[in-house]
Amino acid sequence: MTINNIMLIDDNKIDLFVNQRIIEKYNPEVKTRVFNNGNSALSFLKLLDLKETIESETIPSVILLDINMPEMSGFNFFKEFKQLSTLLKNKIEVYILSSSTSPDDVRKAQNESLCAGYITKPLTVDKLKSLLDKSVNMIQDEPFKKIV
């Protein structure tokens, strides 16, 4: 499984810009789709869910999700995300990408069944490598990744 599509959800435009650029550096072939709030990201995903024939390329294989956002926080995003079809959910890995290092936030993320890992900002190429390259190799070994 190769990563060719990453969805970014963050209310901070600068962070979105930085993350996009980092992903570009990591692998220029990876497509990114950015959303500045959880709701619009969710409606996009719901739309994908409705379409029977989806080109697999448009489905993101990874979502990088910020926690602290107005209207819908990262954790609330998971509540809605659960409503999507199992087929779709199985194809997507959701990672938290946050500046918070609070043990509480990490614990909350750990308790979220659909959360695949926790990355602290700022995103770097190295972090992305350890996240994506390894996730291909040892997906079964490590159900939750914490990358500081």
């Binding site: 901070n12 600068i14 962070d15 930085v18 993350n19 980092i22 602290n68 609070s102 770097t124």
Partner: peptide
């Protein structure tokens, strides 16, 4: 402390790009 961190990490991210 928590909220002040967000802009700092953003700046750090930008700085990483700058280094490149």
């Amino acid at each position: 402390a928590h909220d002040l961190k967000a802009p700092l990490t953003s700046a750090e991210g930008l700085l990483h790009l700058l280094k490149e």
